[in-house]
């Protein structure tokens, strides 16, 4: 494969950008702290990657498809899971089950609004997220419940030098990649995103595909919420906030086509690392919050342009 062909792969840009941000940060410290920085990027990037992969599946369905209820689903799943576990040892799997059930429920509810009431997904998921957030507030009542110690150790621990949450994110990435590239369902999703009517007329069960995508994004968000709450010592009502924009940004920076029909799993991970590294780079250069936001936005735009203009035929 030539260099040009490599550059024409849209996900390479996210990884290049992540590597540059990494190098720029280390340039300031003359290489010290490289391991720590990589470890932190993998830890925090894992949460963005998990929600990003869910969002990617929905965005692949084509224009107008997006899940804006990710933050609320994360918060609700984490809140209910921690409440059920109530810091008791040995309840980690019970909590996981509750979190995943919450994700299943919100995913089905989102799709029901979209399918039965024919609401645009943006409206449906945004409106539903208000309900999920309210449920979280109502059930939480200001309490901050700590995760069970074993679970907290797992979420902050490491295996073979990599954070456990990163292993979870990598395993999910592998599964999503296999499903998209090799499975019948993945083909259906990609076809539906290119031309819904043509996919339907080719005999594909497009509504089932859409339903599965919306349920998957919610389950991924619930899992991310569960892990994030365990990682950070408890659920907070604003814990999902930054993942609304983050989930969409990592999909777009990662080279997935917003027009639908084209997914990019490696790009999501590269973009998730980049999103963490660019903030830590600007922090270490002493940029203030305002400057940081402006630069982050500018860099995102630059990468999206670079990735999309290099795509052949796009």
């Amino acid at each position: 494969m030539t260099l040009l062909q490599r550059l024409s792969r849209p996900w390479i840009w996210a990884w290049l950008a992540a590597a540059l941000a990494f190098a720029a940060t280390l340039g300031l410290t003359s290489g010290r702290g490289a391991g720590e920085l990589a470890y932190a990027a993998l830890s925090f990037g894992a949460f963005a990657a998990i929600v990003g992969m869910g969002q990617m599946l929905v965005i692949t369905l084509g224009p107008g498809n997006v899940d804006l209820s990710i933050p609320a689903t994360m918060t609700l799943a984490a809140t209910l899971a921690l409440k059920v576990m109530s810091t008791d040892p040995g309840t980690a799997l019970l909590g996981l089950g509750v979190a995943l059930a919450v994700g299943l429920g919100t995913g089905l509810a989102n799709f029901a609004l979209i399918f039965l009431l024919r609401l645009p997904p943006i409206i449906a998921t945004l409106a539903a997220s208000l309900i999920y957030q309210s449920l979280a507030i109502w059930s939480n009542r200001g309490l901050r419940i700590k995760p069970p110690p074993g679970l907290a150790d797992f979420a902050t621990g490491r295996f073979l030098g990599l954070p456990n949450v990163a292993w979870v994110g990598l395993a999910l990435a592998l599964i999503v990649w296999v499903v998209l590239e090799r499975s019948v369902w993945g083909r259906w999703l990609l076809a539906a995103g290119q031309n819904l009517r043509a996919a339907r007329l080719a005999g594909m069960p497009v509504e089932a595909v859409r339903a599965a995508a919306y349920v998957t994004v919610a389950v991924f968000a619930a899992l991310a919420g569960y892990l994030l709450a365990s990682f950070s010592g408890g659920a907070a009502l604003n814990m999902g906030q930054e993942y609304l924009l983050m989930s969409i940004a990592v999909v777009v920076i990662g080279g997935t086509s917003i027009a639908g029909g084209n997914s990019n799993v490696p790009g999501v991970w590269g973009a998730a690392l980049f999103m963490f590294l660019v903030v830590s780079m600007l922090n270490s250069y002493g940029a203030g919050a305002g400057v940081r936001n402006v630069l982050t936005g500018t860099i995102i735009i630059a990468i999206v342009i670079a990735a999309s203009t290099r795509r052949p035929g796009a």
Binding site: N195, A198, A199, L201, G203, P205, G261
Partner: peptide, 25 residues
């Protein structure tokens, strides 16, 4: 819209290719 079996009862050949048939990517 919800199920696709191994043996569909019917298949469709579109005449309006961009609208009904081709998966362009």
């Amino acid at each position: 819209d919800w199920r696709a079996g191994r043996a569909p009862r019917a298949v469709f050949v579109a005449g309006d290719r961009p609208r009904d048939g081709v998966l362009p990517l």
